[in-house]
Design a protein around this nucleic acid. Sequence first.
DNA 1: CTGAAAGCGCTTACAG
DNA 2: CTGAAAGCGCTTACAG
Lengths: 358, 358
Amino acid sequence: MTDKTDGMEAEPERRTRRRGSQGVTIRDVAQRAGVSLMTVSNAINGTGKMAPATRQAVLDAIAELGFAPNTAARSLAGAASLRIGFLHAKVNNGFLGAMLIGALQAASLNGAQLLVRGVNSGDVASLAEAIASLRDNGARGLILSPPYAEMLALLPAPGPMLPVAVVAAGSAMPGLVTVRVDDRLAMRQLTTRLLEQGHRRIGFITGPAGHTSSAARLQGYREALAAFGVVADDDLVMPGTFHFHSAMPAARTLLERTAPPSAIVASNDDMAAAVIAVAAQMGVPVPERLAVTGFNDEAIAQTIWPTLTTIHQPVQAMAEQALSRLINRLRGQPVEDDLVLDFALIERASTGAPADGP
Amino acid sequence: MTDKTDGMEAEPERRTRRRGSQGVTIRDVAQRAGVSLMTVSNAINGTGKMAPATRQAVLDAIAELGFAPNTAARSLAGAASLRIGFLHAKVNNGFLGAMLIGALQAASLNGAQLLVRGVNSGDVASLAEAIASLRDNGARGLILSPPYAEMLALLPAPGPMLPVAVVAAGSAMPGLVTVRVDDRLAMRQLTTRLLEQGHRRIGFITGPAGHTSSAARLQGYREALAAFGVVADDDLVMPGTFHFHSAMPAARTLLERTAPPSAIVASNDDMAAAVIAVAAQMGVPVPERLAVTGFNDEAIAQTIWPTLTTIHQPVQAMAEQALSRLINRLRGQPVEDDLVLDFALIERASTGAPADGP
DNA sequence: CTGAAAGCGCTTACAG
DNA sequence: CTGAAAGCGCTTACAG
């Protein structure tokens, strides 16, 4: 265990050509465990039935040798060499990193190859071009984040569209693999929390109409109000676009009403940050005079002051699941279209009971 | 060109076993160009001298067929199957995504395999564990972002350390591959811009002492003042840690001085965001009464209001270069330790001339 | 339940 | 300047 150098007998002169392969291979494991290559492969992949003792012997050998399968060999050999396109917006947000980590993990696990391409956000031509290039390079499926899934419908000639998986979709989308949280339920719980704290006039800033999650979130907000017997006041619902700037006039309008809300629910974190900025400009203390909530739990939720009460989505796990499912589907296995993962309501400093009490 | 289905003659029954390989392979290209596999490979990799006509024929065939090399096969076959560990903090910032995209691209280009691991930030034990696991899995080099490079020195038993590349290092680091922008020069230019606009009392919030870039940025600030003949006032320099929260008391202290600064230079964007938050709380309008600058051009720079004047680092290109260089070094080619890329000074809404004029 | 053989798509020495 | 052969490390049918 402690002696890493055991087994280092004088090597019979290595095969003459090519690199001296520096890693532990399946062959070393087989030798150590006293079985064939095949059996090691079986033990690793859990296929077929094996004698538990054999499997254990292999697993032990793997542990002792610190063996990790070479993903290149694996994907080359496997029914695998499957290429999947990953489209990302050329913007700098935390979502991208988490999605990539998750997708990379699933790709490595499944021996697939990820082809990563940037797309100018909002640019349909750029999207079409990226998809065409991806297809030319052998991509047989696509993994997308939300804005792009909705843009798919806008493409000139969908033609023989590739199978698509959508991460953080707002709702199930017919024919596509979707992995998401329940936006409606999450927003309902978030709003309910504010109601429990005594808030009754609660403003809402929506996402863009085209986004599937916009409607789901608005509905969750309304359901929470209804469940508490609070009459919905349409003057308290303002349109937004998910962009920071869109929420500034919305927040200002809400706060300048004769009867301003004691809380504002924004449909994402960026817009919540804008609400906080406007409140600061207007001298309205958060959370004392105004509670504010976001959605997504992006980096800004913890970077702004006060930190944001928001809904956390497990982006990395979502991407991992989305890619695994897409791969399974491409390999002909039956997979359900829609997977809903758990979200978490995270309470931070931007909320509290209203100053004038419940 | 327009007919994607040409060349689809009745296929001679495919090799019986295994998947019908669905992509265009080097073999198809060779056939189309009327050369051997070898020659195609040569044309692709630009090795050796080829008859220009031959090369062109191959390139044409590649274009016509839309061929893209299978990276799995490539890395498996190449002297390549090189594994590099990529360590990332388990935090949600834009840096990670950009770094991953860049590293992925370089890995794919060079036929290397990236082993991605998360590390609890600030946790030396977690870092040591990740490195050990990476090494066991055959990693022969490491690519790191700044906080980790500095932590390397703290590891209990550096032992036979792996070669390391550092992205966005604050300065050259002996023995490590570093890719960075000139932090000192960037901060000097940023500060100079404020001086040109008429600011004379300029506050500064530093980064943590352990970070190599902290000192470089502070020096750049001081050089700019000196070049303008402005006497440095140590009361205007406050310590920070790069974290949002650390900058709040610092900003408050600066703004409460009898002669408060008309501008505050923060050593990164998060801290600049904190300065803006404090200014809003104190009723100091930005940029009218207070100019604020950041550093890094992370997502928050465009999400906050007013948007931040800051220094843009080409993170993706930096990661790409860092990984390429590390790979070259591992392959025994001579590479220089330190690469300095260009930064960009980005002026947004958080700066302007001081209200009381130059 | 286990193994010998063929093959994934490419690159590397080495001959011509 | 170009090509035939071997090999990278693994998995997939197929026999035992």
